[in-house]
Measured scan of single mutants.
Amino acid sequence: TEEYEYTDEQQAREAAREWREKGYTVTIEEHNGRWRVKTG
């Protein structure tokens, strides 16, 4: 599992979409105004 943090929701969603296209399972969670994208 890798985790990436973004301050911008749009960036987080874009990144998540790219990971999904590569076949990863992706979770996005908002935490204190930051967006965490977890792949695994």
Results as ranks from 00 to 15, higher is better:
A15D: 04
W35H: 02
E2Q: 15
V26H: 01
R36Q: 09
E30D: 06
W19D: 02
Q11D: 11
Q11Y: 05
T39Q: 06
V26Y: 02
T1I: 14
R17Q: 13
A15P: 00
Y24E: 04
E18A: 12
G33D: 04
Y4V: 08
D8G: 05
Y24L: 09
T39K: 12
R13Y: 09
V26M: 02
E18N: 10
T1Y: 15
K22A: 08
Q11T: 13
W19V: 03
T7V: 11
K38W: 04
A16T: 04
I28T: 03
R34W: 05
E30Q: 09
Y4P: 04
V37T: 02
Y4S: 06
W19F: 14
H31T: 10
K22M: 09
E29R: 07
I28L: 09
N32E: 12
T27G: 04
E2M: 14
D8E: 08
A16L: 07
E29V: 11
V37Q: 00
W35Q: 01
E2I: 14
Y6A: 02
E14Q: 12
E30C: 05
T25R: 09
Q10G: 10
H31F: 12
E14Y: 03
T25Y: 14
R17F: 06
G23K: 02
G23E: 02
R36Y: 15
T7R: 08
R36I: 15
T7D: 15
Q10E: 13
E14T: 10
R13L: 14
H31D: 10
R34A: 08
A12M: 03
E29A: 07
R17V: 07
T1D: 11
W19S: 04
E30K: 10
Y24D: 02
W19N: 03
E18K: 14
K22F: 04
T25P: 08
T39E: 04
T7Q: 12
E30N: 10
R20S: 11
K22W: 04
A16I: 04
E18S: 11
Q10S: 11
R34Q: 08
E2R: 15
V37Y: 01
E3A: 10
T25S: 11
A15Q: 07
V37F: 02
E2S: 13
V37P: 01
G23L: 02
G33E: 03
Y4I: 08
N32P: 02
E5M: 11
I28N: 00
T1Q: 14
E3D: 10
G33I: 00
Q11H: 09
R20I: 15
K38H: 08
A12R: 00
T25A: 09
W35P: 00
W35G: 00
Y24H: 07
K38I: 15
R13V: 10
V37M: 03
H31V: 15
W35R: 00
V37K: 00
R34L: 09
E29Q: 08
R17W: 05
G33C: 04
R36S: 08
Q10N: 11
K38F: 07
N32L: 06
E29N: 06
H31S: 10
G33R: 02
E29L: 09
E14R: 11
E9H: 06
N32V: 02
I28Q: 01
G40N: 15
E14K: 13
Y6M: 02
V26I: 05
G33K: 03
N32R: 04
Q10T: 12
E30Y: 15
R34H: 09
K38E: 05
E2H: 15
R17D: 12
G33L: 03
E14M: 07
A15E: 04
E9G: 04
K38V: 15
I28M: 07
E3V: 15
T27W: 08
T1G: 13
E2W: 13
E9T: 02
Y4A: 07
K22I: 04
E5S: 08
R13C: 08
D8K: 04
Y4L: 09
A16M: 09
N32F: 05
Y24V: 07
H31I: 14
V26D: 00
E18Q: 14
E29I: 11
W19P: 01
R17P: 01
R20Y: 12
W19H: 05
V37A: 01
I28D: 00
Y6W: 05
Q10I: 11
E29P: 00
K22C: 08
G40I: 15
W19T: 02
E3C: 08
V26Q: 01
R36E: 04
R17L: 10
Q11S: 14
T25H: 14
K38M: 08
R34S: 09
Q11E: 14
T39S: 06
R17N: 12
T27L: 09
Y4G: 06
T25W: 13
K22P: 01
I28F: 04
G40R: 14
G40H: 15
V26T: 06
Q10W: 13
G23Q: 02
A12Q: 00
T7H: 10
I28R: 00
G33Q: 03
E29Y: 13
A12T: 01
E18H: 14
G33T: 02
K22H: 06
E9Q: 07
H31G: 06
W35D: 00
T25V: 13
E14W: 02
Y24A: 04
V37S: 00
W35L: 02
T27N: 06
Y6H: 03
G33M: 03
E18F: 11
E30P: 07
E21F: 03
G33P: 01
T1N: 13
R13I: 14
Q10Y: 11
T1K: 11
R20G: 09
W19M: 12
V26F: 02
E14A: 12
E2F: 15
E9A: 07
R17I: 09
Q11F: 06
R34E: 04
A15S: 07
G40L: 14
E14C: 09
T39R: 14
W35T: 01
R36T: 13
E29H: 08
G23R: 01
V26C: 07
E14I: 11
G40F: 14
E2K: 13
W19A: 08
G23W: 02
A12N: 00
E14S: 10
T1R: 10
T39N: 05
E30W: 11
T7W: 11
G40T: 15
V37E: 00
A15F: 05
I28H: 01
T7F: 12
D8H: 06
Y4H: 09
Y6Q: 01
W19C: 06
E30L: 11
A12D: 00
H31P: 00
Y24P: 01
E30T: 07
T39Y: 10
T1V: 14
E5T: 09
T7A: 14
T7E: 15
T27R: 05
T25N: 12
V26K: 00
H31L: 13
T1A: 13
G40Y: 12
T25I: 13
Q11L: 12
H31K: 11
E30A: 09
E30M: 12
K22Y: 04
A12G: 02
D8S: 13
D8Y: 06
H31R: 10
R34V: 09
G33F: 03
W35Y: 06
T27C: 09
V26N: 01
E21V: 04
Y4N: 06
T25K: 10
A15H: 07
K22E: 05
Q11I: 09
G33H: 11
K22L: 11
G23S: 02
E21D: 12
G33N: 05
E5G: 05
E9V: 08
T27S: 10
R20N: 08
E3H: 10
A16N: 01
R13N: 10
V37I: 10
G23I: 01
Q10H: 12
V26A: 08
Y4K: 08
E21H: 04
Y6N: 01
E9M: 07
G23Y: 02
Y4T: 08
E21K: 08
E3M: 14
N32C: 06
E2L: 14
A16P: 00
K38T: 13
K22T: 03
T39V: 15
G40E: 15
E18R: 13
T27F: 08
Q10M: 13
R20V: 13
E21A: 06
R34T: 07
W35M: 01
K38L: 10
G23M: 02
A15L: 05
D8L: 05
R20T: 11
V26P: 04
W19I: 06
A16Q: 04
E5W: 15
W19E: 03
E5Q: 07
G23N: 03
E3G: 11
Y24K: 05
E14P: 00
E3Y: 15
T25F: 14
D8T: 14
E3Q: 10
